[in-house]
Amino acid sequence: MRFIDLRSDTVTKPTEEMRKAMYEAEVGDDGYGEDPTVNLLEQKAAELLGKEAGLFVVSGTMGNQVALLTWTRPGDEVILESESHIYYYEAGGMAGNSGVQPFLIDGEEGVMPIEEIEKAIRPKGRVFPKTSLIVLENTHNRAGGKVLPLEYMKEVYEISRKHDIPIHLDGARIFNAAIYLGIPAKEIAKYADSVMFCLSKGLSCPMGSVLVGSKEFIEEARRKRQRLGGGLRQAGVVAACGIVALERMIDRLVEDHEKAQNLYNFLKDIEIFSVKKPDTNILKVRIKINKKAREFLEEFKKYGLLATSFDDETLRFVTHKDVSFEDIEKAKEIIYKVWESIS
């Protein structure tokens, strides 16, 4: 059986152009700064996001963890939204790697109230931890791929300047946010001091992310990457995919958003579900009856549809390049069958 895989955009396969680029990639030892393909990817990524320098890392989690290590010291405090990826899905890395504690703020669809952010900043004093970083996530995964408003990011940035606290943006899907807003990604990134974005999600690379920021920040981040075991050698073979992704795969993300909108238009009329209109390529679907998410997932799988869940009451569907518009129509048929059988 061929499965329609809507679990995540991480399941995307590299394109033929990427595979060819991997084969032909010019390589060197990145540990010595001598891999020309890695260097080119880092340069292109930095320019695209309006920053001075970039650092190729093996994953988005590594990029976020390197940023935390670079901006903070053990015992510091980091302000972040209570369902952010760094807090929720990175295996306790902020505590285990950086020795910092989170100050969690409940957000509305990923948006922390401005007044709560400023209130969370610790006063100076011997009994308080130092507030050393504010973290934003755009798009916000657990909020259903929601895009942070640009004006909101500007307001947070102004607070950060007022208190001399840097901002790190977990921009794993920043290009989805840019497509939604109709602006270049650098217009989002300018309201953060460092940005991590993933190559391995909607951009379809087999692995990798890039962390960007000032030259000084990236120089120290490179040392922190080494601490995490992320020193690379002939990494040009995978960095080559990233170059193709930045040149070819960003504009096509609009198709993923259209697929998600198509699926939303179907799901919103199913009475057992409550679904929020997607900004991007992630659908968050709440179950309104006394059935657990895993029960739906098991039934979907029987018919050839793969999805995942945020929790027992909430399903998640993610569109991407390897799911066609025809696949979306088939997915709708499967969901309808399961709905009928449950009803």
Rank of each mutant, 00 (worst) to 15 (best):
G231K: 14
P166M: 05
K259M: 08
H163M: 00
T70S: 12
Y23H: 04
Q43P: 00
K186L: 05
E187G: 02
E313K: 15
S204D: 13
G33C: 00
E326N: 08
H320V: 00
G96C: 01
L150C: 03
E16V: 09
N39L: 12
Y89M: 12
E83Y: 08
L246R: 13
D76S: 10
L297Y: 02
L80G: 00
P14S: 12
Q226A: 12
L246I: 12
K186R: 15
G230T: 02
K190F: 05
L169H: 06
G33N: 08
K259N: 01
V11Q: 04
R223F: 02
L150N: 00
A245G: 06
T70L: 08
E258M: 05
F3Q: 09
S343T: 12
V254Y: 09
L203P: 03
I272R: 12
A46H: 02
G208L: 10
M249I: 00
E118I: 05
S204Y: 07
L232F: 12
G92A: 01
L306H: 11
K268G: 06
K186S: 15
P123L: 12
G213V: 06
K154Q: 15
K154G: 01
L263Y: 08
E220H: 04
E42V: 04
S214P: 02
D5G: 00
Y157D: 03
V147S: 09
V100P: 04
R252C: 07
A67Y: 02
L283F: 06
Y89Q: 12
L148D: 09
R223D: 04
I159L: 10
G75D: 07
E77G: 02
R126Y: 06
I287F: 00
P149M: 06
I183N: 10
A189K: 01
V38A: 14
D170V: 06
L232A: 12
G92V: 07
V212E: 01
G50I: 09
D256H: 15
G107V: 08
M62K: 08
Y89P: 00
L6W: 11
H85F: 14
I167P: 01
L68G: 05
G75H: 09
Y32E: 09
P184D: 08
L315N: 10
G99D: 06
V318C: 13
E109Q: 07
R73Y: 08
A91F: 08
L150M: 01
A91H: 05
G33L: 11
L211N: 11
I334T: 03
L267T: 00
E151H: 02
Y191A: 01
R223M: 04
V111L: 13
Y264Q: 04
L40G: 00
K292I: 11
V27Y: 03
A221T: 06
F296W: 15
G144T: 08
P278F: 05
Q65R: 09
E116S: 13
R122C: 06
L80F: 03
Y180H: 15
A293V: 13
Q43K: 15
M112E: 07
K259L: 00
P36Q: 11
C205I: 02
I114M: 04
E47Y: 10
G213F: 10
L232W: 13
E42P: 05
L169D: 10
E34A: 14
A293L: 05
L306A: 04
S324P: 07
Y89G: 00
G208Q: 04
S84Y: 03
L305Y: 07
K130S: 02
G208P: 01
E24A: 11
G242D: 08
I179N: 13
A21Q: 14
N265Y: 10
F300C: 11
L263P: 03
